[in-house]
Design a protein around this nucleic acid. Structure first.
Lengths: 230, 230
DNA sequence: TTAGCTTTTATTGTCGACAATTAGTTAGTC
DNA sequence: GACTAACTAATTGTCGACAATAAAAGCTAA
């Protein structure tokens, strides 16, 4: 998965930020967990100042909530927060698809088609191969095609991490394969035809479906844990 | 203007953050200016650690860009950055209006109408009274009506500050009065009628018009400074 | 046993100092 | 005069220590 920071980190704070972000998103540090600066400083072998910088940045991308004089905590996952996240994502990625339809050049569109062909082969060869990476790659390409750095920073610097966090916690292998592929295909067609309106609409619908999938999984999980109590 | 942080700041870092943010948005610290931690620490009578926290937060809301080992600089204003900002704003506020149409209750909608009536009187009594505040208040109300905390945080915590910064630098007194009022009115009508689609469309168009206004002002200003050289 | 108050402990916020890096200045060469 | 290398100064990044605050623990009375 390409990231905004493909360059190696320069400062210890940045390196620690990346490490912490990964630990949170992948679940080593679970949702709602309290973050202790002293503990983390020991774990990562840096001073507390470095941890504070890193945690401050994690707060900025909404993976962490900080309370003055109390400390920082990983955000808790909830249906409400998920809905809010996906409404934001829908708006931003809809706009990204719209812009992509207007600004992507022929070669970029070709690359996108080629990516789809590649994904189709992956689906046939192995249903577990390239599932989430394919989806992420697809969205990444559209986003780059938007040519809007602000949009890119918002989605890749923040939204996508939160999205991934839900997936990891729900043990989701990746997005729906066949239907998602169809949706990808239609989106690319709209972009290729420079139909910004349609591209946006299809992307937004695609995001809505993804949201529904995660919501039902989250509901099923909380129902299952309730059944355990009975 | 109501802010997300109506409570007085608890920590020195937060207080300094608010002060710095204001200084940047209102132009006391101009765009592209280099920020010196030592100078700022002296100016605000705090330690450098406090400044670093505050500047880190300003980076998180994209008012400041930081380079490792070099320092921080207020973002430069440009046509390109303005376009990107407004594309993001359009997507988010369009979504906010859509959600407001779906979630605002009758009393909230009434309050919104009352606000419009109040604005109409302000326009008649004095064309300079409540111009920008009215617009901001309007958008604030819609945003609150969306009931999406993530959306609210993005717009009020970041986007609106950048928007204000452009206005201040361009010496703009506020938004277009008569036409903006009409647009506000249509948006409120759509919300009152629970027409989410229309509310979103009208809000997005409203934002587009605002963008065009700022762009032409920015162009006029850069043309004028070029004419001075000749 | 529970609730409220006080004390203790742990943690966060801020400080000044040292280490590391970059930008600016100066001297030498062509 | 222009360019380059070396040196110096300024600034940023990180450190450990102290101050301030909240949470936890302990004690007492009802």
């Amino acid at each position: 998965m390409p990231t905004l920071l493909d360059k190696p980190p320069v400062t210890a704070a940045e390196k620690t930020y990346l490490q912490l972000r990964r630990a949170i998103v992948e679940g080593q540090i679970p949702p709602a967990a309290k973050l202790s600066e002293a503990d983390l400083a020991e774990t990562y072998d840096v001073s507390r100042a470095v941890i504070r910088e890193a945690v401050g940045r994690l707060e900025g991308i909404r993976l962490v909530e900080r309370t003055a004089n109390v400390g920082a905590r990983v955000v808790a996952l909830s249906l409400e927060a998920l809905a809010e996240l996906y409404q934001v994502r829908e708006a931003l990625e809809g706009m990204a698809a719209r812009l992509a339809a207007l600004t992507m050049d022929e070669r970029e569109v070709e690359d996108l088609h080629r990516l789809l062909v590649h994904h189709r082969h992956s689906i046939k060869d192995s249903e577990t191969y390239y599932q989430e990476d394919g989806d992420v790659d697809f969205h990444y390409r559209i986003l780059q095609g938007s040519k809007n750095k602000h949009l890119i920073a918002l989605l890749m610097g923040s939204i996508y991490h939160a999205t991934r966090m839900y997936r990891v916690q729900l043990g989701m292998a990746g997005p729906r394969i066949a239907r998602a592929f169809d949706e990808h295909h239609h989106i690319v067609d709209a972009i290729a035809h420079r139909d910004a309106e349609l591209a946006e609409m299809l992307m937004r619908r695609h995001i809505q479906h993804t949201r529904q999938e995660i919501e039902s999984k989250l509901l099923a999980q909380s129902t299952a844990s309730k059944a355990k109590l009975a």
